[in-house]
Design a protein around this nucleic acid. Structure first.
Lengths: 336, 336
DNA sequence: TGTAATTAGGAAAACGTTTTCATGTTCGGT
DNA sequence: ACCGAACATGAAAACGTTTTCCTAATTACA
């Protein structure tokens, strides 16, 4: 038979109310009683029944994490795991549970709707890729604690946390400029890729600020793949007056670019410096090791977790957005 | 005010017991009553309070998924997401919730121990990378429903589901042999990499079965990276009597190998055919598209989910292991 | 010293289900 | 027409906490 709060109360010679208060850290119990109850709890190896607790507290102690979870996500969005990890670490500390829901836009709505009705989640952490207008409305109207990871692609009153890709682009470009490079090119993703788009804008702004102008042909856009990275880099190398440095919108493109440069007998960074974004494992295993502008996604998860827990406690707490700052990690590929 | 089961009972002119039975699909309720109750449920927009349900049922309706969740996992083990996805899909259907726990070996033990004591999980799905002897003992002694994804690296009575890497190696090699290649090499991971090890064994067995013998130098082992893949492939190409085909233990090695082959002005599959394992997104974006031996990891997740749910219902159900079958996907890289 | 304020702790209700068991009703078979 | 079996339903207990009052005891203050 399980040991319940009643057993503890009896053994400690108190009421269950007192035991409950000790467990939940109420300050209306004297030190002496608290100690005694805690001793008994230890002795009897009492563990509160979490379902009973949740039930009595009218809280699910459950946070939903909604994201796409399909075949390619690990490569397209490798950060997801680490964000999840950060979130989970925080929730764990506070006794919350992280429920992962692999959904598309449509399913996300259904899941949240059901959870709101059934009260089966205390908050929602939603990846931007599954946010839709209906979902946005749902979250806001139900007054659910929530946070969006990344920026929803439309205006809304949702709370979100994101990286500053524009700033990342600036930092990367500025690093090259500061290192003495004058002719910096950019290889980016396609038009619809907002992350790449912001990084491009940052690149352009950094050039403008340094009063450097480069040919229009220095900006390339294509798929975010090794293959297209190589292809575009080769095009850049064929220019009559080729760039002395290049910013790659992401690691896959960078890998292709590295390959292209080396295939032409050129070397990095002597002939062309190269910088990219996000610190993937192969940023360090490739030759030369890549300089990157990174963001601490684990920390992003921690912040997101803290935010929703705080929001659960104090629903009036009003903050709409967080932005995490990028950091420059200088390695061989830009070291002159 | 929330609408509760009592409201439904009152409106339907029945007892709460009847409503409860309707909700839970007991077959002792007449069709007429069932319909009437369901109508009322719809009309009143009643949604059972899940915490109350869990409490009354003494079930947490929670399944823990324990896995490493660190920075590199998305690349080292990109399958994880999809397995998770498969599991979640099944659990969702049955009203269970998937709680993801990012843990190392040590933490895994603590998490399971606590969950067992508090009764906060109905089953555990554990990735082999966080399995330890103490955890194994814990799971077995507590008689918890569980399944290990992958094979624990020691004998135990744990239930597990895994792919047949040995068979995969055989299939890959046999495909090359059947396509008419006579001199097949293998580029594998390091000695400790059990996945690679099994694939190598499969390769050797397939050669043996076809009575083909190749030089010892045809078997290379190194890191599972683009870089080492290229390096080892270049070594193979330098052999006086070079191979006409190669099996790469994984996609990263394969990518390096492709690069190495093409850098020598050779072409795939005309000069050298190439086959690898697991269908990653870049298997299709690389030139030429790679033939792979794949396993359906989503389906693996589904099976794992089904298994634990079944085990929860029927604790006596005795099956210790599942093995999923690999399938060959022929693309350009082996098409003569 | 008397009174108000504070503190420590307990009794019992409440939370919303499920489940057990008893009961009345219907049915098939003789 | 009668009997036992099968069926459909309901009353009430149970699940293990938290929480809301309430009371008694102590303290603080004038």
């Amino acid at each position: 038979m399980r040991v319940t709060i009643k057993d503890v109360a009896k053994a400690a010679g108190t009421s269950t109310a007192t035991v409950s208060k000790v467990i939940n850290g109420s300050h209306t119990i004297s030190k002496a009683t608290t100690d005694r109850v805690n001793d008994i709890i230890h002795e009897l190896k009492y563990h509160p029944n979490s379902q009973a607790q949740n039930f009595a507290k009218r809280a699910s102690m459950n946070i939903y994490f909604l994201t796409r979870l399909d075949k390619n996500i690990a490569f397209e969005n490798p950060h997801m795991f680490e964000i999840m990890s950060g979130v989970q670490k925080i929730l764990d500390k506070r006794g919350y549970t992280l429920s992962v829901k692999g959904v598309n836009e449509k399913e996300a709505c259904a899941v949240v709707e059901q959870a709101v009705m059934q009260n089966s989640a205390d908050a929602f952490i939603v990846h931007a890729s599954v946010i839709s207008r209906p979902l946005s409305r749902l979250l806001i109207e139900s007054e659910s604690a929530h946070i969006v990871i990344g920026y929803p692609n439309f205006e809304s009153r949702l709370c979100w946390i994101d990286t500053n890709n524009h700033l990342s682009g600036e930092i990367a470009t500025k690093h090259l400029i500061d290192s003495g490079f004058k002719r910096t090119a950019f290889i980016g993703g396609r038009a619809g890729d907002m992350i790449s788009w912001h990084r491009i804008k940052g690149y352009e702004d950094a050039l403008k600020e340094a009063s450097i102008s480069v040919p229009k042909t220095f900006l390339k856009q294509g798929d975010s793949t090794f293959h297209d990275g190589r292809r575009m880099m080769l095009q850049l190398l064929k220019l009559k007056n080729r760039p002395d440095s290049v910013v790659c919108a992401n690691n896959y493109i960078a890998l292709g670019a590295v390959e292209a440069i080396q295939s032409q007998g050129l070397s990095i960074p002597e002939d062309i410096a190269l910088i990219t974004f996000d610190d993937y494992p192969f940023s360090k295993t490739v030759e030369p090791m890549l300089t990157v502008v990174n963001i601490d996604v684990f920390d992003m998860g921690i912040q997101a977790g803290n935010y929703v827990l705080n929001k659960i406690k104090k629903p009036n707490f009003q903050v709409q957005s967080y932005t995490t700052l990028p950091e420059l990690i200088v390695r061989e590929s830009t070291r002159k």
